[in-house]
Write a protein that binds this DNA or RNA. Structure first.
Lengths: 189, 189, 189, 189
DNA sequence: AATGAATGAGTGTTCATTCAT
DNA sequence: TATGAATGAACACTCATTCAT
């Protein structure tokens, strides 16, 4: 708002806009395809502006991912404020996995981050905190052990959902989640 | 099978050596970092040899991934030939997740492929066949529904294992797998 | 002299501090490596401050070199105030050449300036005046002809001293200087 | 010779032509101003060709300087093959210092190299060998001690000749050289 | 008076790809 | 058939300089 003039000298939200643009590029082209130029074009900002605000492409990527995790953590947290009964929990989790195209962006970024973290210790710190926080939220409803497996299951389900040509039936997803939530009767070794 | 033989005069294994080198590079640097030059260096082959055998870098990557899936599918299949009792199955799967550094390479390539497939239809065909085959193997022991969830769970567990600083306790992994294998007693929803 | 005072309100020594910083950068990185940013960092001054006080990088460099020549000329002059006997002169000159690391900075800047002057007429005016002044000082003790060759010899000795891995023996330096100071007996054409 | 066609696929002397072009650029713009693009333009060669033949700009510069020293050493050597009498020696040296514009290029490169060597150990190895070789040649006529001072004197004379607006009188140069060649009668110190 | 944000030109370098041999 | 030379496009990044505040 306030004038989309060609020349934008004072532009206090530029940093954030660049970060959002970087995330857009990461969704589209992945860490393999991100470049200063693509980000600048997406943010409608001169090339020099990107290198001015971020000391390197790696730094830009790291901050973009941090910004993504921050948003997604809040969103995740918020999702569970409405959960009261066990049934609510199941529904929320199913929605998390099956969530339409709106969720696709989020999921792609998540996997992109995971893979990048495999090679970048800085990012790994980010994913570890993220995983810990997610599990903590789940654990409020399930206890820590179940939260761990549930988290892994969700990760796998989401990845498969992303890659499947035709969506998994909602029932199958629900059944998988319900099972993960159900303590096993007879103890295992 | 066999077939494929296009160029194999003097150095019949050069093609394969290049593919293996490409996989090595993919493990180290990811799809973001693979180049003709790195592959050539790794395979100890002149640069021209790589571009000669593979019409483009994308083509090389695709064939490398195909070669990887072929190997991994066989390996996966083989893993289950020894399984007889239910207990064996659990052990094999736990090993699959916890498998040491030897399995790391495999796991990294798997995720790299999944992510690449998100944007490349050619690769998606590959991942779909792979997923289908893996599930089919699992289904021989568990039935189709459970195979699906189990597959997702394994995917998630492996990813988490890759990213964790300290390995998950073997017990937790086993418990998660056992649970996925155990049909839920009382139906819900 | 004095004059020059253009901008000196709140931080009257900032200009000088910037010039000194510029010289430091010139010693470290040469004319090939000087930048506004390095100078600003060295002077612990905001980037804008450098461009504010000096209209261009060339201008900054020129003034830094002028400042250097001014200092060095005074220092040179001062060096000879103590000289009375011929023997004193020799000692002072040997010290000039062999002078330890303290003199290194000075020598590097001198050669840097000479080379820059080769391509920049403004700087050449500076080097010419400098050479003239130096020779005039020497000439007070040696007469003009000897001063010229002596000056050249010193220049060469200093350059060699800078580049040598192990210092030339003090005796050799002294011998060279003594010889330059000694008028040739029998004239030859 | 042999066709100056626009497209020059096979061009075995390209490396050398690039080195010569690099020296040209170094004469014109110094180590401060050399770029891949300038060298490419000067050599009439595509940009990629320069980076193909030389792994970095520093490498290109180093090899160009090495090539220069090689040429200049040979030239220097050759200069003294004609020297028989003492008088010949003086004449050759005077010519070395006073040598017209043809010698200017050589001199500029020499100083450029000296200064660059101050900061680059690789280049310093080059200058040290060069200095050693030059002195050895001189020493054949003067003995080692005098060769050292003579070398320094020549260096200084040449630098001054480069920077002077009007050439030093030939006589003054000759006198300086003659003096450096003349052993001092009375012992010093 | 002073400065941080901003930008466009230019840098070194990498690389997929082409092609003559 | 196989390969090294070659090249043009693109990249990350640096920087002198401008300008609004």
């Amino acid at each position: 708002m306030a004038g989309e003039g060609r020349v934008r000298r004072h532009d206090p939200e530029r940093r954030t806009r660049i970060l959002d643009a970087a995330l857009d590029v990461l969704v589209t082209d992945g860490t393999a395809g991100i470049t200063h130029r693509k980000v600048a074009a997406r943010a409608d900002v001169p090339l020099g502006s990107v290198t001015y605000h971020f000391s390197s492409l790696a730094e830009l990527q790291a901050q973009a991912f941090a910004w993504y995790v921050e948003q997604r953590t809040a969103e995740f947290e918020e999702l569970f404020t409405k959960v009261e009964a066990h049934q609510d929990l199941v529904e929320v989790l199913v929605e998390l996995v099956q969530g339409g195209p709106s969720r696709r962006r989020s999921a792609v970024l998540g996997f992109e981050l995971h893979l990048a973290a495999l090679r970048d210790p800085t990012l790994r710190a980010l994913t570890q905190k993220w995983t810990k926080d997610s599990r903590a939220v789940l654990a409020r409803f399930t206890g820590p052990e179940i939260a761990g497996r549930l988290d892994a299951l969700l990760e796998g389900l989401i990845m498969h959902a992303l890659l499947a040509t035709e969506p998994e039936p909602r029932e199958a997803t629900r059944a998988a989640i319900v099972q993960a939530l159900t303590p096993v009767a007879g103890r295992e070794t």
